[in-house]
Design a protein around this nucleic acid. Sequence first.
DNA 1: CTTTATTCGACGAATTTGTTCCAAATGTAC
DNA 2: GTACATTTGGAACAAATTCGTCGAATAAAG
Lengths: 191, 191
Amino acid sequence: MSANSKQQIIEAAGIVFERFGFKKTTMDDIAYAAGKGKSSLYYYFKNKEEVFEAVVAHEAKQLVAEINKAINASHSAVDKLRSYVNIRMKRFVQRGNLATALNDNFLATFAFIEKIRNNYRDFEVEMIAGIISHGIDNKEFKPIDANFAGEAILTCMIGFEVPLLTKTHTTEESVKKINNVIDMFFYGICT
Amino acid sequence: MSANSKQQIIEAAGIVFERFGFKKTTMDDIAYAAGKGKSSLYYYFKNKEEVFEAVVAHEAKQLVAEINKAINASHSAVDKLRSYVNIRMKRFVQRGNLATALNDNFLATFAFIEKIRNNYRDFEVEMIAGIISHGIDNKEFKPIDANFAGEAILTCMIGFEVPLLTKTHTTEESVKKINNVIDMFFYGICT
DNA sequence: CTTTATTCGACGAATTTGTTCCAAATGTAC
DNA sequence: GTACATTTGGAACAAATTCGTCGAATAAAG
């Protein structure tokens, strides 16, 4: 099981999925993009859904790495949280399969997408809650329930995704609006 | 036969074709985008290919209108030719179904695409040749064979499409390079 | 050479898709 | 209202596409 070939397939699949979406992408498309025969894919993956999950996991990993880097670069919890929101929303507007999987109504019926969606949501709440906890230890934030606040902020971000997708706003406008909401959170949270 | 409904279908189909390409677009996709039942499409069009032809014809018409407007706004043949090339290439990089139909290898095998391609090529040669003829009458250009020169310039533009699609250049860079080539034509043509 | 890892062509079964047919709905003129 | 033409979409079906499997071919490793 060459990790090389597997990664090659995942990256090729990522490009094709991003272009055509899950349903319209065929295993042949992926195989052709990866420069392999179709049946070779089944040596590495059980089925199409598993390929998609791997692609999403790979993108999520990249996103997490990017976010962690930005978080570690900021010292205050306020800056960490701001970095988190900015990177997350920026990545969201330029789509990618993770964002698509989390939103596309076309995929909404698939059970395996529900799994991804829920897993990732829990993970995000943990990330945000972690930052908030740090801010509480720091005395930057009041001693609120970090998990509850994390859920609130995430829900708020998700609420912003819909107008982002309808494209009535530009990316910059949206980022500005989101930061305004974040500021409101801060003024309510900061000591 | 409501021209309204037909136009509505053509515009909806244009969006879907542009996103997914000819093959991956289903009649259901088009019908859904147009807010109609699938079989209603067959009241207005014989089959999927005819819908696509109508979309391309519609886009070509728009492109021609845009080009004519720009050509009429310029007085010298030099400016007319420059406008023509600029608009054509700008439209090409932002794609659309006409550009896709003229280039997508995936469609290359279809006979009906060959028809569109050839028809439109002849039309473009005529357009360019017309401008050159005007320039010859104007004494802006030497008394060369307008049709032959038109073919040469078109072929030159088509040669530029490939690097445009590989995206190693930005649009602006490409326009600059193309204008350089046009200048070379002028210096060889102008009296 | 033997064994293990990897690739691919060919195939069957299940699904999707293009297209047709016909009845229902809608509009239009009397 | 009736009579008529226009427009729509549900159901059905054949053809094409697609997923996933199997076994054989090829390459790599020991």
